[in-house]
Simulated assay, not measured.
Amino acid sequence: MSQHHQPSTLAELGRTWIEVWNARDLERVLTLYADDVVMTSDRIPAMGFDESGTVRGKDVLRAYWGKALGLLPNLHFSLIELFVSPDSVAVLYENERGKRICEYLRVNAAGKIVQGSANHLPH
Rank of each mutant, 00 (worst) to 15 (best):
L72E: 04
V38F: 09
A34K: 09
G111Q: 07
I113R: 05
L61N: 02
I44C: 01
F77W: 13
T54A: 11
A34I: 05
S85G: 15
R97N: 10
I18W: 11
I101W: 04
E94G: 13
I101P: 06
R15M: 13
A90F: 09
G70F: 05
V60E: 12
A90S: 11
D42Y: 08
G48F: 05
N95L: 06
A118L: 11
L79I: 15
R56C: 03
S41E: 03
G70V: 10
D59I: 12
R56T: 11
I80K: 15
A46E: 05
P73W: 04
A63Y: 06
G14A: 10
A63K: 13
K112Q: 11
L72P: 02
V91A: 06
N95S: 05
F83H: 14
R100D: 11
L61W: 01
V29K: 01
N95T: 04
L13F: 01
A23Q: 10
N74K: 06
G98N: 12
Y64Q: 09
W21N: 07
W21M: 02
I44G: 04
R43P: 02
D35M: 13
L13N: 00
G70A: 13
L92N: 15
L10E: 01
K67W: 08
L72K: 03
L92H: 14
S85L: 04
A63Q: 13
S117M: 10
V107F: 04
G116L: 10
A63N: 08
I101E: 01
L79F: 15
D50E: 07
A11K: 15
P45F: 07
W21D: 01
S85H: 06
L75K: 04
C102M: 15
E19S: 13
R56H: 12
V38T: 14
T54I: 05
V114D: 11
G70M: 11
V114W: 11
G57H: 00
V107R: 00
